[in-house]
Design a protein around this nucleic acid. Sequence first.
DNA 1: ATGATTTTTTAACATTTGTAAAATGTTGCC
DNA 2: GGCAACATTTTACAAATGTTAAAAAATCAT
Lengths: 188, 188
Amino acid sequence: MIEQLRDTLLFSGLSDDSWLELSHYMACVQYPKGTTIIHADKVEPYFYILQSGIARAYSDGENQQITFWFGESGAVLFSFNSYINNSPGYENIELLTNSTLIRIKLTNLFLLYKQNIEIANWGRKIAELELIATERRLIDRAFKGAAARYHEFAAQSPELIKRVALKHIASYLGVTQVTLSRIRAAHQ
Amino acid sequence: MIEQLRDTLLFSGLSDDSWLELSHYMACVQYPKGTTIIHADKVEPYFYILQSGIARAYSDGENQQITFWFGESGAVLFSFNSYINNSPGYENIELLTNSTLIRIKLTNLFLLYKQNIEIANWGRKIAELELIATERRLIDRAFKGAAARYHEFAAQSPELIKRVALKHIASYLGVTQVTLSRIRAAHQ
DNA sequence: ATGATTTTTTAACATTTGTAAAATGTTGCC
DNA sequence: GGCAACATTTTACAAATGTTAAAAAATCAT
């Protein structure tokens, strides 16, 4: 189960030695659809890699719930504040399907970062790739209308369009469910 | 000039040895207001730390220019794609005031990342802090109206409100200049 | 399958924000 | 100072999106 990960892009930068060192701390876990694996307002002790399944991250507001991230297999998933600041997070992460995940305890991961330079650079790369993807989304919102954002999302993530509730996609795209319905109606 | 940096938060995690190793590759440069130090569609070879001054990052669209980031002293500043993917970037970064910057050649920085684990973790931390700030902005846009975003920005960045053109602030907040004018008119 | 629950769509209307253009204010330069 | 260039505000109107509620469709559990 964990061995399969070795050949994925995510770990391609690691030497065999570093892979062994890192994978030694990995454990494989399975959860049913609907499980919340990261809770807002808690310090979450694990870093996860989604091996199969779909996940979404959301925050709760007064009268709304905003979905701001989706993950498919290969995605890394963790409470930003727990991971970065060791403080309670703002996001919930919920599994939208039965899922298989690999997890590593943050305390172990942090020790590896201090001890193994390849793993430290692996962690750096993860943050950098998430960063560039997040900034892209921020800029996209400014340049593209809701309709264009929807069609690009649909083209790039066909799996998500099929399997994720439209209300979640609507809030991910930054519009209401009603507006998303109108966008979809316009193109058929 | 460069010695002053040693005591800033940004470098507090480095040992004296690592600081020396890193700072050895630093050079101090000064540019007048209006200089564009990072150009879209180019691979930019430097990583900068803004020592004094104000900068903004923007992308050009067909009939608009979107400002998506401001930096004040202490900010790190680089072409995301150049730094992360070694490919041409999408952002321009322009100095809005006469500025002093420290710069490091990316090729040297990348070598240090491979050689010095403290510097690798320093680079990891930089990406992580940018990441959490960027995601926060994305989520903020969903939860808060344009007026609230303006007032929080004004409260948190009084220096920027004073010295940056409102057209840039408007696009940073995700509204038109007209809307920003209306928001400002409503509270006086 | 059937009924209950949830999701999605549709409708009517209100509100916000955008667009374009003119008016006003500001800045810098000769 | 005074002109030119640029920035900001205001106005009137248009377009997009939000709100609320209800109908239609899809999904789920028994």
